[in-house]
Design a protein around this nucleic acid. Structure first.
Lengths: 183, 183
DNA sequence: GTCATAAATGTTATGTTATAACATCTATTC
DNA sequence: GAATAGATGTTATAACATAACATTTATGAC
């Protein structure tokens, strides 16, 4: 089958026995410039549906709209940005509505909050419970979510070796993404 | 010589050739309950003087007072908490004053900001330029600043292996400190 | 179906954190 | 002592987030 990798931008021939939509759709950490981003959003929405179904929680209209809005960009979005987009077509949502939807989405592993930016971003591997690790480009604002076992293990070890019992962690790295470091 | 470790609470006999005030004063990551905390503050102030002298920047009255206030506690302090303490005796400082002092102190490596808490804490190893790694107790709010080479290297490796050029990082671990995990 | 309940959303107000913009003062250098 | 840079003062407002309570909507028991 032909398979379009929305991150790398390649179209590749993929033997059917290797068909793994998730892995192919979400392979590179940094999306290709000019990729078909709507695909990211619809992919994420499908995953969100599945997650909510299996967790028996409700992806209501409002929550879905907030999630869609977040996925309009690979750069993180502030709560009030989301609000503005929601209300752009005349709706009259209040900040509370957005924050509540965000709480729900974060609780269910569909969205992450970036503490260093007070902003929110769609989760790239929903379902798995995890605190993400983020690479934040200070030039173009794109954020890559990575999941490095090495990082989480090393951090956990550093904490426990000091008698600390970790229950959650934040790892946010600022710097230049592959696209911007060239400039 | 006799040496009092303000963190562990021990008094130890230390051969003069091993006299390293900094290491002895700041050894354990989590301070002992009930230690003489004023010693932490005065120690930090002395170090701050030295750092500012060597960097040829001015530790003005206001900046010193902010730093002292931060060191009144091992738990991180919000900017407006600091403001309230400064103004407790009738002064009329504005938020700007505190934020400007904090900017200075952070720039010169004397204070860290904890993104996950929007709060500030005195740096335990000033002078060395570093982004700290923090263990934050969610029960007693005490924060330990650690400096794990393993963590920083692993994080840097994870970033660069993805084509990212890191310039700064945030590592904040939430959990229970040695004192609280027993309860 | 309708009643009771829980869940979600609506609404208003306010709390908390941080910065912009410009005026004034102070220290330093020549 | 005039010029300058750095620090602080002052006022206003931006940006981010939650409290508290009212109303609506979904769900299950009967």
């Amino acid at each position: 089958m032909l398979c379009y990798n929305i991150y790398s931008g390649d179209t590749i021939a993929l033997p059917m026995r290797f068909f793994m939509p998730r892995a192919s759709a979400v392979s590179a950490d940094f999306p290709q410039r000019g990729h078909d981003h709507s695909a990211c959003g619809s992919h994420a929405l499908l995953e969100a549906e599945a997650v909510c179904r299996s967790r028996q929680v409700k992806l209501t209209d409002l929550r879905r709209k907030v999630l869609e809005t977040i996925w309009e960009d690979h750069a993180p979005m502030g709560a009030y940005d989301i609000l503005a987009k929601l209300n752009a077509e005349g709706e009259r949502n209040a900040p509370m509505a957005v924050y509540r939807a965000l709480d729900f989405l974060i609780e269910n592993g569909l969205v992450h909050r970036l503490s260093s930016l007070n902003a929110y971003i769609g989760c790239r591997h929903p379902g798995r419970s995890h605190s993400g690790q983020f690479l934040i480009c200070s030039q173009c604002n794109i954020v890559a979510e990575i999941t490095s076992e090495a990082v989480s293990k090393t951090v956990a070890r550093a904490a426990t070796s000091r008698g600390f019992k970790p229950s959650g962690e934040i790892v946010e790295v600022m710097g230049l993404c592959p696209h911007c470091r060239g400039n």
